[in-house]
Simulated assay, not measured.
Amino acid sequence: MPPRTPASTAPSRKTPAPRAPRSPRRRPSRTSGRSAAFSPLRLLFKLIVLVAAVAGLAAAAVAWMPIPLASSPLDFHIERGSSLKSVARQVNEAGVKVPPLALEMLGRVTRSASMIKAGSYEVHEGVTLWALLAKLTRGDTSQGELAVIEGWTFRQLRDKLDAHPDLRHDTAGLSDADLLRRLEIPESHPEGLFLPDTYLFDKRSSDIELLRRAYKAMQTRLAQEWPLRDAGLPYRSPYEALIMASIVEKETGRAEDRPMVAAVFVNRLRRGMLLQTDPSVIYGMGSAFEGNIRRRDLLTDTPYNTYTRPGLTPTPIALPGTAALRAALHPAASEALYFVARGDGSSQFSATLDEHNQAVNRYILKRAPQ
């Protein structure tokens, strides 16, 4: 058995000597060196953001607060082509007590400066700056209204225009001839050229513009209706149809009688008979008419006296509506040559003079039939 090696001489694994602990690397402080130099800028940035936020909240509060008004409702007008600055000034001067700079700044922030529309506006108590700007950019203008009535004369129409509080009276002082020139209307007489209707308009817009619209509306209506007329009518032009329509308008008591009234006058024209219509005589009398037409008036010759002159009157005698125009272009199929008022708004139509005389006795003279 081999001899044992003494423990002192036996080989052994050496345990590595412990390492000396490393000193930790020192990282640069966040508040030192280059970063530390930026802390004032960061603070300034935060301050700017805070100020902007406060200003935004303040602006929002102002935008949603009711604006004091000089009166309620309050009307104001924005001129065409106005800049945002000018709009803000016009609104303030009209009595909307908002600082012009506030409206101007809100318009620029919302990028709506170029969207504001000209026209007349109406605001009420409680309106806010935001609502005001929205109204201006939508073009939510306040409107006036004028009802032009069938059977009015042009003189009556001008009187209504002159008295309307929501219109700008640019026609004041103009003669009828001057007005036709301003409107570039080729006819020499204005009667009958304007279509009766209800017209809406921006407040403080010109009465000339309203007349222009009414004239164009009548021209459009004539262009639509004239090609559809019945064959064989005794009119040489749309203007003559307009003259007939005005006579029908003035002679009709009830709407359903219009085609028959038109038939009477068309039949008379075809036979070469005098029209003998009182409204034309009254029109020719002008201001001399005092409410009653007398026999001597029927015998006094004027260009509009259809008892003394054959054919149509030289111009319309009133403003005819669409229904009267259509009746003139589509008269009833009838042989009637006469009519007389029954006293209830309707008319009695007759084909012979004998029938007509009986109707006169019954409805005008109140005599019992023979």
Rank of each mutant, 00 (worst) to 15 (best):
P3F: 10
P3D: 10
P3Q: 11
R4F: 09
P6I: 05
S8L: 09
T15W: 08
R34N: 14
A37Y: 13
L41M: 10
L44Q: 12
L44F: 12
L47K: 11
I48F: 11
V49Y: 06
A52P: 07
A53H: 07
A58W: 15
A63T: 09
P66T: 00
I67A: 06
L69G: 05
L69R: 00
A70T: 14
S72H: 07
D75N: 14
E79Y: 15
R80L: 15
R80N: 15
G81S: 15
G81Q: 14
G81F: 13
S83H: 06
V87C: 04
R89D: 14
Q90A: 09
N92V: 11
G95M: 04
L103C: 00
V109L: 14
S114C: 12
M115Q: 15
K117V: 04
E122V: 13
H124D: 10
V127R: 04
L129K: 06
W130V: 08
W130I: 04
L132G: 04
L132E: 05
A134G: 11
L136G: 04
T137E: 09
T137K: 06
G139V: 02
S142M: 12
G151I: 00
W152N: 07
W152S: 06
F154K: 09
R155G: 13
Q156R: 13
R158S: 08
L161E: 06
D166M: 11
L167T: 05
D170A: 13
T171K: 11
D176M: 08
D176V: 05
R182A: 15
L183I: 10
E184D: 15
P186R: 14
S188P: 08
F194K: 07
L195P: 05
P196R: 01
D197F: 13
L200D: 12
K203G: 11
R204W: 12
R204D: 11
D207M: 09
D207C: 09
E209F: 14
L211F: 01
A214H: 02
K216D: 15
M218V: 11
T220A: 15
R221A: 14
A223E: 15
Q224K: 15
E225V: 10
P227D: 10
L228M: 15
G232L: 07
E240P: 00
E240M: 02
S246W: 01
V248F: 00
G253V: 02
D257Y: 04
P259V: 02
V261P: 05
F265M: 03
R271N: 06
L274P: 05
L275I: 04
Q276G: 06
P279A: 03
S280K: 00
V281T: 08
Y283K: 02
S287T: 11
E290A: 13
N292H: 12
N292T: 14
D297C: 02
L298G: 00
L299H: 14
T300G: 09
T300P: 01
D301M: 03
P303H: 03
Y304M: 02
P310W: 10
P314G: 00
P314I: 01
P314Q: 03
T315W: 01
P320M: 01
P320R: 03
L325C: 03
A328K: 01
L329Y: 01
H330A: 07
D344F: 08
D344H: 10
G345C: 06
G345T: 03
F349W: 04
A351G: 05
L365P: 08
